[in-house]
């Protein structure tokens, strides 16, 4: 398993390089240009000069190589400088966004806290709700609990977050006035009052996202449990006089986790990717809204960098999922 992990990690390097190349050319090939952000009142010659100063007219391979150097060399040096107060990266050009004309990584740094806080909590809440619901629904298949769970999950999944989010705002903010509609990213938790405020402003976005996440995960959990429930080993375990608790939670659950682990592992990178619509709706302004803003403004360095970090996380978590498969089911061997 260890050699497998190491081999996969090594293999990840060429994979990621290839992904970065594909992303770069894809974004470059896409129609549209950062010029769409410039008002029509700006005359064409000024427009051309602005684009020139962004370096957009250089050939695509030059920009790609420059980006590679900046991502793997300049930015890590900058990170070291920031941590230890050294000045290795002085005078080196960092990855600069077209839109903000500032370093992409400082924007990512600003965005990470609220993304992790809000989207991460929502994901955690989703998983914590979904797994027990899935297990119990499967255990008591076609009971009223299962039917209600199915109905809720299907509604949760078929109703897009732009709808459920707006609905929550209208009910809880406009009508009841309990929660704010806009997330305050400058809020620092120092005492009880600010903590309450933080919880309040997180409630609506977490509810919106948590519902959507829980819906999908609980479906996979339930179906996988059902699939295993009918197997002979379950009958054997029961026949041996094991308690229902042990049978369900130890034997069946462990064997049912593979698809669920896959779904959860696929979902974790998307925490970093943020939830574009929910973030936008509540003004959380995390990574997701940065990405969509960059895509709309054709901010190539920003899209490229964010998409690439996202790719790293996906490769990493898929590796973790593969390792987990082996732990859950020792029969799975990769060597």
């Amino acid at each position: 398993m260890l050699t497998y992990t190491l081999r996969r990690l090594l293999l990840a390097i060429p994979t990621l390089l290839l992904i970065s190349l594909v992303i770069f050319f894809l974004v470059d090939l896409a129609p549209g240009s950062p010029a769409s952000e410039i008002p029509l009142t700006v005359p064409p010659d000024v427009r051309a000069k602005i684009l020139e100063s962004m370096g957009i007219n250089q050939p695509v391979y030059v920009r790609y190589l420059l980006w590679l150097k900046q991502f793997f060399y300049v930015e890590p040096l900058n990170g070291i400088d920031a941590l230890f107060g050294t000045s290795f990266a002085d005078g080196m050009q960092r990855i600069i966004s077209y839109q903000t004309r500032g370093p992409v990584f400082s924007l990512i740094g600003e965005r990470i806290p609220q993304t992790l806080k809000v989207i991460g909590t929502a994901y955690l809440v989703g998983v914590l709700i979904a797994v027990p619901i899935g297990i119990y629904s499967a255990y008591r298949q076609y009971s009223w609990f299962d039917q209600a769970g199915t109905l809720l999950a299907m509604i949760g999944f078929s109703v897009p977050t732009f709808f459920s989010g707006t609905l929550l705002i209208i009910i809880f903010s406009v009508m009841l006035g309990w929660f704010p509609t806009k997330y305050d990213t400058t809020l620092v938790v120092t005492d009880w009052a600010s903590f309450v405020k933080q919880i309040k402003q997180m409630t609506l976005p977490v509810m919106t996202l948590g519902l959507a996440n829980a819906a999908a995960i609980s479906r996979y959990m339930r179906s996988s449990m059902l699939e295993n429930m009918g197997h002979d080993y379950v009958r054997t375990a029961r026949a041996k006089g094991m308690s229902e608790r042990t049978v369900v939670l130890k034997h069946v659950l462990r064997n049912s986790m593979i698809p669920v682990v896959t779904v959860i592992a696929l979902g974790i990178p998307s925490i970093f990717g943020g939830a574009i619509i929910t973030e936008n709706l509540f003004g959380v302004n995390g990574i997701g809204s940065a990405l969509i803003g960059a895509i709309h403004g054709n901010d190539l360095p920003m899209v490229q960098t964010l998409a690439f970090i996202f790719a790293i996380l996906i490769v990493l978590f898929n590796l973790i999922a593969d390792v987990l498969y082996g732990l859950l089911d020792p029969r799975i061997r990769y060597d």
Binding site: G32, S36, H296
Partner: peptide
């Protein structure tokens, strides 16, 4: 899409 329509990219129709 507005970013294409107003983007002025000579390569886009």
């Amino acid at each position: 899409d507005a970013s294409v329509f107003f983007g002025g990219d000579a390569g886009s129709p």
